[in-house]
Design a protein around this nucleic acid. Structure first.
Length: 288
DNA sequence: CGATTAACCTGGAAGC
DNA sequence: TGCTTCCAGGTTAATC
């Protein structure tokens, strides 16, 4: 579900709770999600201090005091929620949330940096999410990250870089932008929106994008992601930030999930087509 | 090698 | 009120 803006929103929600917190206990309810949990997952986390919360593309990174970093991917329906406990861990101040149920697969029992207690629960009905553990010093060299293209909001993402990635690619531009090795972090929503803003057809062959159009596309991608993060991401069905708040960017969609609506630019109806098995929304009048 | 398709899961909405 | 079919913010193994 979550694309880069939603993952960034989750990161911002978790950061103040997790940074400096110590993991007192790990409640892992099943051996696998999309993939098996890492070996001895709970054991390797227990007792560790969480040094911060980072993000790369759609991955959350939780570097630990042990020299290992937990990578988390939310898949389609992954979600973190936070329950703050009492201010202290003194006797009598004990606090416990309801036991995990339904699709709550993982819960961390935390002693916060300031001394309070918090529970962080990961739920994921479809179980397309997953967790991995990598050595922090090798993180950029890990197979998972080596396969990723540049961060769209970072300095490594510019017209020339995108041009090179698209050259020789005969696939539709839409499909190329969903490829995480071209640019990392886009998903179905923001690809549709960025193509609309750039005035480019999702059906155009990727290799037909020249320097000028690549520049427009880079600007459009940056623009839509920045505004989506400011709005707290998009909530369509079940996405929510770690604090339970819903995103608001869906109110700013120009084309996504708006089949039949009038294009705000030219008035033509927004079309829906299927590309590589997924819905694409676009305006045939504005996107060439 | 590059490029579509199927598969992994569950739940909600829409159609009959 | 069922029962069926379709669809969903993603990734990846299999197939063409």
């Amino acid at each position: 579900m979550p694309e880069l803006p939603e993952v960034e929103t989750v990161r911002r929600g978790l950061e103040p709770v997790l940074t400096g917190a110590t993991i007192r206990a790990v409640d892992q309810r099943r051996p696998d999600l999309r993939f098996p949990f890492p070996e001895r997952f709970a054991e390797r986390l227990t007792g560790a201090r969480i040094e911060g919360v980072g993000r790369r593309a759609k991955f959350l990174m939780f570097p630990l005091s042990t020299g290992e970093t937990v990578l988390g991917h939310l898949g389609m329906t992954g979600r973190f929620s936070v329950e703050e406990g009492a201010k202290t861990l003194e006797p009598g101040a004990f606090y416990a949330p309801d036991p995990p149920k339904g699709h709550e697969h993982l819960r961390l029992d935390l002693r916060k940096a300031g001394g309070g207690r918090a529970f962080v629960t990961y739920s994921d009905p479809r179980r397309f999410g997953f967790f991995e553990i990598v050595q922090t010093v090798e993180i950029e060299d890990t197979p998972r990250f080596r396969a990723l293209g540049p961060e769209p909001l970072g300095n490594g993402f510019h017209a020339q870089a995108l041009l090179e990635k698209l050259s020789g690619r005969k696939m539709p531009l839409k499909a190329a932008l969903l490829d995480q090795s071209v640019v990392a972090g886009l998903g179905n929503i923001y690809v549709c929106e960025a193509l609309y803003l750039a005035g480019l057809s999702p059906r155009r062959k990727a290799c037909t994008v020249g320097a000028t159009r690549a520049g427009r596309l880079v600007a459009a991608i940056r623009d839509v992601l920045t505004k989506a993060i400011e709005a707290g991401g998009s909530t369509l069905r079940d996405y929510a930030a770690a604090d339970g708040k819903q995103g608001a960017f869906q109110q700013q969609f120009h084309v996504y999930d708006r089949e039949g609506d009038a294009c705000g630019q030219c008035g033509r109806e927004v079309q829906r087509i299927v590309q590589s098995g997924r819905s694409t929304f676009f305006c045939g009048g504005c996107q060439k």
